[in-house]
């Protein structure tokens, strides 16, 4: 499919008096890997949460493969709400805080949504879960409670849980930001494999090396707007706007400190 695999049209969102998204439009083609950077509070999370309508924008529309995910202009009918849940299942989301389910063990975390949402039978769901847990190297942890896992293992579990739904798009919101530095690598390995498998992804991150190596496109956001976009290497080495230059300078200083 061409450029309208995922389409964001004129997204606008305010919280109280804060403009989190200011008329953001974006076309994503299948297989594209898009990194999003920008200062804290600039609307990166809100943008990702608008894509699967977890945070419905005040204005705008989101389309996935020609299906309307959500539109601010009309209230959801029951049928549309059902369609939205189906579309969400196709958009795997990974959160900074992992949000794995502590009352279910590792295997159950991956099995449960397959049973409840995808309506698979237990045997199929379990064999699928085992296969994916193997891919993220958690096969020897299947009976473990999430509380006994390290941050890196929790995030790999969260990714496995999303992948078990056979997503066609992954939304990752600072997937490595809550991790100790020595645990970042094991999560990046999993993400790199996804890129190589051709997964379409929107990734919010501060890992600029990762972004410039694996990104097809990089967006720099500030104040709820996309300020610059283009190939990661070009944007990171030759920032055009003052705001991006300042942002990169700050990021450089902080990463230098580590």
């Amino acid at each position: 499919m061409t450029s309208n695999f995922l389409e964001l049209k004129g997204l606008y969102k305010t919280f109280d008096n804060i403009t989190a998204l200011n008329n953001v439009s974006l076309n994503v083609s299948k297989g594209e890997v898009i990194f999003i950077i920008g200062p804290s509070g600039c609307g990166k999370s809100t943008l990702l949460r608008a894509v699967n309508w977890l945070t419905p924008p005040d204005k705008g529309e989101v389309w996935l493969e020609g299906n309307l995910v959500g539109s601010s202009s009309s209230k959801l009918t029951i049928k549309e709400a059902k369609l939205l849940n189906n579309l969400r299942a196709k958009m795997g989301m990974v959160f900074q805080q992992f949000n794995v389910w502590p009352h279910l063990n590792v295997l159950e975390n991956v099995v449960r949504p397959q049973l409840v949402v995808a309506k698979r039978n237990k045997a199929n769901a379990e064999s699928k879960a085992l296969k994916i847990l193997d891919e993220v190297s958690l096969h020897n942890k299947i009976d473990e409670w999430p509380d006994h896992l390290s941050g890196g293992q929790k995030q790999r579990l969260a990714i496995a849980r999303a992948l078990a739904m056979d997503p066609i798009l992954m939304l990752l919101d600072e997937p490595t930001s809550a991790l100790d530095p020595e645990l970042v690598g094991e999560v990046l390995i999993v993400l790199k494999r996804l890129v190589n498998n051709g997964m379409t992804m929107l990734i919010v991150t501060h890992e600029l090396g990762f972004a410039s190596e694996f990104g097809d496109r990089l967006l720099f956001m500030d104040g709820g707007e996309i300020i610059e976009e283009g190939s990661p290497k070009k944007i990171l080495t030759m920032p055009k706007t003052k705001r991006l230059k300042m942002f990169l300078k700050k990021l450089d200083i902080t990463s230098f400190k580590h």
Binding site: N52, L54, M91, F95
Partner: peptide, 27 residues
Amino acid sequence: VPKGQLDSARAIGMTDWQAMRNVILPQ
């Protein structure tokens, strides 16, 4: 129950009630 728990349940395609039943209420 931390808000992220409902987020992750809704994001994976659960209805409000499925999220309550499978993720929130057990916790």
